[in-house]
């Protein structure tokens, strides 16, 4: 069982991420037992049958960088977990997808970053609305993950608004004007 960071703390993870292998058909692929996060294609192909699993809180959906979050807009209220995949950590589409899910579509459930998720991006990820972070299995030891929690607080007062703090610094804090010296 891998470890994830959720709401700033380390938790054992109970979910399995289903990835389609070459030749797998979204409509028929077998789902692993237990809590499972399925690709968007599986959800779209089998929404009728999977809805009950989602409602029971044992099925989540993951989006790839090329997926449009608008395609699950109407399902957001029944999904307790949505994940966004980072095939490479430098592929930053997931940041915008997260921001859209949270601020445009008002998604309030668990939003998880999966894939190539590294501690040096934790700060940006949480700012964009991810409340759970799942580094690849075996990427970090528990001790390293504990050390990595510090990365969630790298900058104490960022300038711009984002999902975690929608107001920019100039609205959050009174920033003083300079006293002009009179010539």
């Amino acid at each position: 069982m891998s470890e994830i960071i959720k709401n700033g703390q380390i938790h054992a993870d109970e979910w399995t991420v289903l990835r389609l292998a070459e030749g797998d058909d979204a409509a028929t692929v077998a789902l692993p037992a237990g809590r499972v996060i399925v690709p968007l294609a599986v959800w779209l192909a089998r929404r009728e049958t999977l809805a009950a699993h989602a409602d029971a809180g044992v099925l989540g959906v993951w989006l790839a960088g090329s997926d449009d979050p608008a395609s699950i807009e109407s399902d957001l209220s029944r999904l307790q977990l949505i994940a966004v995949d980072f095939p490479k950590f430098a592929d930053g589409r997931g940041y915008s997808i997260a921001a859209l899910l949270r601020s445009r579509y008002g998604y309030g459930g668990e939003l998880r970053a999966i894939g190539d998720v590294l501690r040096d991006q934790f700060f940006y990820l949480t700012r964009c609305g991810f409340d759970s972070l799942q580094p690849a299995a075996g990427k970090y030891t528990t001790a390293q993950l504990e050390a990595a929690l510090a990365s969630l607080r790298t900058f104490s007062e960022p300038y711009q608004g984002a999902v975690d703090r929608p107001e920019p610094l100039f609205r959050r804090q009174p920033r003083p004007a300079a006293q002009k010296a009179q010539a």
Partner: peptide, 13 residues
């Protein structure tokens, strides 16, 4: 400059 400094959404364009 301030807005773009460490903008979390646009660090991996």
């Amino acid at each position: 400059r301030q807005w773009s400094t460490f903008h979390p959404e646009f660090a991996y364009l």
